[in-house]
């Protein structure tokens, strides 16, 4: 059971990483970040359950809650930035954001 969750979360990590380098839409990038955070949360919860079967382990779960809320903050900033990008560049294609290079 735990193994399945673990494998699942590793798969989520892979999915997120895939998303990072294949998606050009900025919101999809942010979603990839969210997936990655969720993979971590899942791992936390799974290990929390694994360490203390049948109980609610406070520490990892509170960490997960912390990470969810911080991810919320990050997403908010990200969306604000996407808006700003859209204003300045007129696009949300991340591959168009290539003025900074070299």
């Amino acid at each position: 059971m735990y193994e399945a969750i673990l494998v699942c979360s590793v798969a989520l990590i892979a999915v997120a990483l895939y998303g990072f380098y294949s998606k050009r839409h900025m919101i999809k990038m942010v979603i990839s970040v969210e997936i990655l955070v969720n993979a971590a949360n899942l791992l936390l919860i799974a290990f929390g359950a694994y360490r203390a079967p049948g109980y609610v382990e406070l520490l990892p779960q509170s960490l997960a809650i912390l990470s969810i809320s911080s991810a919320g903050g990050v997403t908010a900033v990200a969306l604000a930035l996407i808006l700003a990008v859209y204003k300045v560049y007129g696009t949300v294609d991340v591959r168009k954001l290539r003025r900074l290079r070299g």
């Binding site: 003025r99 900074l100 070299g102």
Partner: peptide
């Protein structure tokens, strides 16, 4: 330093 976020990731 390609400047492409995709490549960075």
């Amino acid at each position: 330093q390609t400047g492409s976020l995709n490549i960075n990731m």
